[in-house]
Amino acid sequence: MDSLTQIVLGAAMGEAALGKKVGNKAMLWGAVAGTIPDLDVLSKFFVDPITANELHRGFSHSIIFCIIAAPILGWMIAKIYKNKEADWKGWSWLMFLGLFTHPILDAFTTWGTQLFWPFDYKVSFKNIFVIDPLYTIPFLVFVIIAMFYNRTHPKRKLFNNLGILISSLYMIITLVLQRNAWFTFWTNLENQHITYQEIQTRPTPLNSILWSANIETKDSFLIGYYSLFDKDDYINFSEFPKNHHFLGAMKNDPLIIRLIKLSEGWYTIEKHDDHLFFNDLRFGQLEIDSESKKFAFSYELFYDKDGILVAKERERKMGEASPLLQKLFHRILGNKS
């Protein structure tokens, strides 16, 4: 999830662990713990984009990391506060909750997380977008309200627990909505007599009303959209040929093998003039319409002057965000044209 959500979640976990003993210091250190796993993004300053994407949500998001880091961080905090309000065990438990709930929350997103690192398997339920105001805002409001009560006041615990409860209920609701969307996509594939191999369903940006699906067929991928406000359940699927043959001898290059693994096999190859592009389909398109050919993650493939294959990530322009949000809101309301 986004940084703000992880900070709020960490603060709520800190309050649940030690709020009654140390007050707002518990929220502060819980918020710190909630941000630590995402420090792996700093790898982009030291390695190439492919390696950075491989490292993201890896070791720092694993159970092993939480178990190792929590007691070390807890010991450091206990040294800072040399009093008897909370001991090393209490601070370690707070840090573990802050660290561990971060990858648990990330596991519900499209990107997923390597909870069981060093195993490559990623846990990804794909039922919530990385930024979802309906999840974050109520959570944030209740945490802020709780902050203004004395640490021993019963309402402080009440409001903090309300934030955790409401956000958890919303997460459960998104799982139900995802299942409903999946069934709608599946019904359309059956009714349209489309033979497919796999379906992946996920929410579109900033909401849980409009859902998209990636469908793999033998020679192509299909993408469709379904809003809970659609007046009918008919889905028009856009087709994107795999074109994997465009890779030719490149397919055996270690870089391509890594990209295929990173995309989990959900990729197409585009060819424009003499330029070749690798599109990672897992994170959807940059526009919500059937004509869009732009994907959120795309890499241009080319050989450098030394004959080494390079993958350069396509630039995403900030100026495209506003039109996208307008189209997104239009489609959320059930407007298909």
Rank of each mutant, 00 (worst) to 15 (best):
N24C: 02
D87Q: 00
T113H: 08
R316A: 11
R316L: 15
W29T: 08
H245G: 05
I68V: 14
G74W: 12
E85V: 02
F116R: 03
I64M: 13
A181V: 02
P323T: 14
E313N: 11
E15W: 14
S208L: 04
E239C: 11
R57G: 08
F46T: 04
S62F: 13
T110A: 09
T110M: 07
A31F: 11
Q192M: 05
V22K: 04
G265Q: 06
N161Y: 08
M1Y: 07
E287I: 00
D233A: 02
A69F: 10
L286K: 14
F46Y: 11
T110L: 01
A249G: 01
K317C: 07
F142Y: 12
D120R: 00
H272G: 09
Q200W: 11
P241Q: 05
R258A: 11
D273P: 00
S60E: 01
L134N: 06
A12H: 11
F237H: 05
L175M: 04
S60P: 12
I256V: 12
W88I: 14
E313D: 03
L165V: 07
R316K: 14
V141T: 06
A86F: 11
A69W: 00
L4I: 15
E315H: 15
E216Y: 11
G58W: 09
W93R: 15
E198Q: 06
V41T: 09
V141H: 01
T101I: 05
K305D: 13
G163A: 02
I332L: 08
T204Y: 01
S227D: 09
I137S: 00
E315G: 01
Y267M: 14
F46P: 01
D274N: 09
I209V: 10
P205Y: 06
T204L: 05
H244R: 06
I269L: 12
H193K: 10
Q114E: 12
N252D: 08
W182M: 05
I144G: 01
R331S: 13
A11P: 14
I77P: 07
W93N: 12
V8D: 12
L28W: 12
D219R: 09
A146W: 10
S60T: 15
L42K: 06
D40Q: 10
F277G: 13
L158F: 13
L247C: 05
T51R: 05
E239V: 12
I68C: 12
P254H: 04
I269W: 13
S322W: 11
Q6V: 05
M27C: 13
K157C: 09
D233T: 04
Y234L: 08
N83H: 03
T101Q: 08
L134K: 04
L206Y: 11
